[in-house]
Design a binder for these strands. Structure first.
Ligand SMILES: [Mn+2]
Ligand SMILES: [Mn+2]
Ligand SMILES: [Zn+2]
Ligand SMILES: [Zn+2]
Lengths: 157, 157
DNA sequence: CTCTCAATTGAGAATTATTATCAATATTAG
DNA sequence: CTAATATTGATAATAATTCTCAATTGAGAG
């Protein structure tokens, strides 16, 4: 486990305790996955990965915990048009994403001009802007090479 | 009906015919709403507005038609995290939005730096970018005013 | 205009990811 | 350890959207 992942996990656990909530083995495992994963896992994927170590774990527990961590401000959700969601526990604040329509991979780009554009939007509209959502969709370098077929962001529906 | 709305409606009807589909009164009414509305209506809102003129119109017909117009490339969908969708038949291509969290209003801002940012994302990631989704969330000027009037200062609880 | 037939509609059933319920169980403080 | 309370897993419920299908309609041909 990397140092940054450890810090993220500690932050999640600290918020839990600060709210008087209990740190169960299931929660610890889910939070650890959220803190470590660089692939923006979905609730269903987390559940499938955790079944190995917790054979009886319920999907409801995963959904509950992921929502809990989000509500504690320690993960952010990327909700897609097909109804599926993916989560990022490494960067719990809003940030842009690039989604591969072929393999479902999601990466975090660095976009220096984002702050300026947010200010431009506020100035042009008069809105007080609280948050945002920015997602690009396309084909990742690997899939461009391989010319694979499209795969949805959600495994099964 | 404005000239631009007429053009949009004509484009929708032309695509329909080009695909060998039929122009029914229900479809015409739904497409007209999509072509005219500046408020980004949702399927349910379209259905409620249309019930006046078509008392027996089915929600399924509205869902079907909105999806059809979208699949013809004549409307774009803004899908939100709560599962709901709003549609824009005036600008059928991807474009940014600003959503008021208080009243639900959605506007189309002009953002000159968007093209540059898309190129920045492509260059930084190596992805071939096909489309995007950009939504800002905040409070519109009217709701900002009303909020300060009715809730001048924070009271103790 | 009439005919013909595929396309479309409306009603109701089905789908399905997520959420709510609740008795049993596990965690934490003391 | 014990008590108090939070959490879990199983299961039922939810609800927006989609599907099914018999009846109806649009639109081109004649
Ligand atoms: Mn991310
Ligand atoms: Mn728009
Ligand atoms: Zn890919
Ligand atoms: Zn508003």
């Amino acid at each position: 486990m990397s140092a940054t992942a450890r810090k993220r996990l500690d932050a999640m656990a600290a918020k839990l305790k600060a709210s008087g909530l209990k740190l169960t083995p299931q929660r610890l495992a889910i939070m650890r996955l959220l803190a470590e994963s660089e692939d923006h896992p979905g609730a269903d994927g987390i559940w499938r990965r955790l079944k190995r170590r917790f054979p009886g774990i319920s999907p409801a527990t995963v959904y509950r915990t992921v929502q809990l961590v989000k509500s504690l401000g320690e993960a952010c959700e990327i909700a897609f048009a097909d109804g599926g969601s993916r989560y990022d526990g490494r960067k719990p604040y809003p940030h842009p994403h690039i989604v591969c329509l072929a393999c479902g991979r999601i990466i975090d780009p660095e976009l220096g001009s984002l702050g300026d554009m947010t200010r431009e939007a506020a100035a042009a509209s008069g809105f007080e802007i609280k948050t945002f959502r920015l997602d690009f969709f396309g084909t990742c370098p690997e899939c461009s090479k391989n010319k694979t077929k499209t795969m949805p962001t959600r495994r099964k529906k």
